[in-house]
């Protein structure tokens, strides 16, 4: 029991563990909030399935610092993101933008679901007369 409680506590607290070093954090908390938000959307190109905010990789740390330096220099959030994208491509965005090449990615699942529904409707429509026939038969047998 003790072990279970300990595991659950540790598991829950792990949400609050971040890769950001205390030394990296900006003094101005409103700027720091912006930096954190940007970092959460940028993929760490070394570990790939983590954001740079979560990653301990050195390159991720350097990118976090770059994001903060650019914010301090007065760049807008979009300008910071655009700079990183201009170097690494759309791949660094954990939330890929909706555009020509990502069209299938965004709308493919919806289209496939729709096709599935259409097939289902067609299927049941075809079944309807059969079911009615069966019911009729059943009724006759009962008689």
């Amino acid at each position: 029991m003790k072990f279970l409680i300990l595991s659950i506590t540790l598991l829950l607290s792990s949400n609050f563990v971040h890769a950001v070093d205390p030394g990296e954090i900006l003094k101005d908390s409103s700027l720091e909030i912006r930096a954190r938000a940007i970092s959460k959307d940028l993929r760490c190109v070394v570990c790939q399935n983590q954001s740079i905010d979560d990653s301990d990789a050195e390159l991720a740390r350097d990118l976090r610092i770059l994001v903060r330096d650019r914010i301090l220099e007065g760049d807008s959030d979009q300008a910071v993101i655009d700079y990183v994208v201009s170097r690494y491509g759309d791949f660094v965005l954990l939330n890929p933008p909706v555009k020509g090449v990502t069209f299938v990615l965004w709308f493919g699942p919806i289209v496939i679901t729709l096709i599935g529904f259409i097939c289902l409707i067609l299927f049941f429509r075809r079944q309807k007369p059969l079911i009615q026939d069966l019911k009729k038969n059943n009724a006759e047998v009962k008689k």
Binding site: L59, D62, L66, R87
Partner: peptide, 13 residues
């Protein structure tokens, strides 16, 4: 030392 050049080139390793 701070990856500025590496990031400019989009280096990953």
């Amino acid at each position: 030392p701070k990856s500025r050049g590496a990031i400019a080139f989009g280096v990953t390793g």
